[in-house]
Amino acid sequence: MNRPLSSATIIAALLLAAWYLVRAALDRAPNRADLIAVAALGALVTVLALVAVAGLFDGSRPSDTATFAGYLFTTVAFAPAAAWLARMEPTRWGSLILGVGCLVLPVLVLRLQQIASVTGA
């Protein structure tokens, strides 16, 4: 796992989570810019996943490749799923969905780092 890219992903997700939770508290629905920001976060997560997959081919694999692949798939799919659900709920709850989604992403990235660090991947 690329530590600087992982850190950037975690920081971006936490900043967006704070923004969306404040918007939910202020009774604001997600707007187009909010959905674009989640799409940008999803792109950052996708780049992180591609770097992680490329790291699997350099010879250092995690001890449990299946678990690593499951977390990787979930991490990539999480931001688009949150954006899709928030788009279906055009109220303050859509902002809450985005906020919670952005809070879960750092946990998934940290878990990927833990699994990868077992063998130094």
Rank of each mutant, 00 (worst) to 15 (best):
L96S: 09
V38F: 05
V47L: 15
Y20L: 07
A77W: 10
R3P: 02
F68M: 03
V104T: 14
L14S: 14
L5V: 02
A69L: 15
S117G: 11
A12I: 00
A8I: 02
A86Y: 07
Q114R: 09
G70C: 06
A37R: 06
L5H: 01
A49N: 06
P62M: 07
T65C: 06
F68N: 02
A17H: 08
T65K: 11
L35Q: 08
L26S: 07
L72E: 04
R87P: 01
L105A: 10
I36C: 02
R111Y: 14
A39L: 09
L85P: 03
N31P: 00
P90N: 01
A39N: 11
L103N: 07
E89F: 03
T46L: 14
R61S: 14
T9H: 02
A86N: 10
V45Y: 02
L35D: 02
F73V: 11
L16V: 05
A29G: 00
A40Y: 01
E89C: 02
T67Y: 07
A18L: 08
A54Q: 11
A49S: 14
L48Q: 13
P30E: 04
V53F: 07
R23P: 01
D27P: 00
A69V: 12
L35E: 06
A43N: 05
L48N: 13
A49Q: 02
A12W: 00
L108V: 09
R23N: 14
L108M: 15
A43M: 05
S6R: 06
V109K: 04
W93I: 06
L14M: 09
L103Q: 10
T9Q: 05
P62I: 08
G42P: 09
R92Q: 12
V47G: 03
L26P: 00
A81I: 14
V45A: 15
A17D: 05
S6L: 06
V22T: 11
G99F: 04
I36E: 08
V118W: 03
R3D: 06
A24V: 05
P30G: 06
L112F: 05
S117M: 08
I115R: 13
A116Q: 03
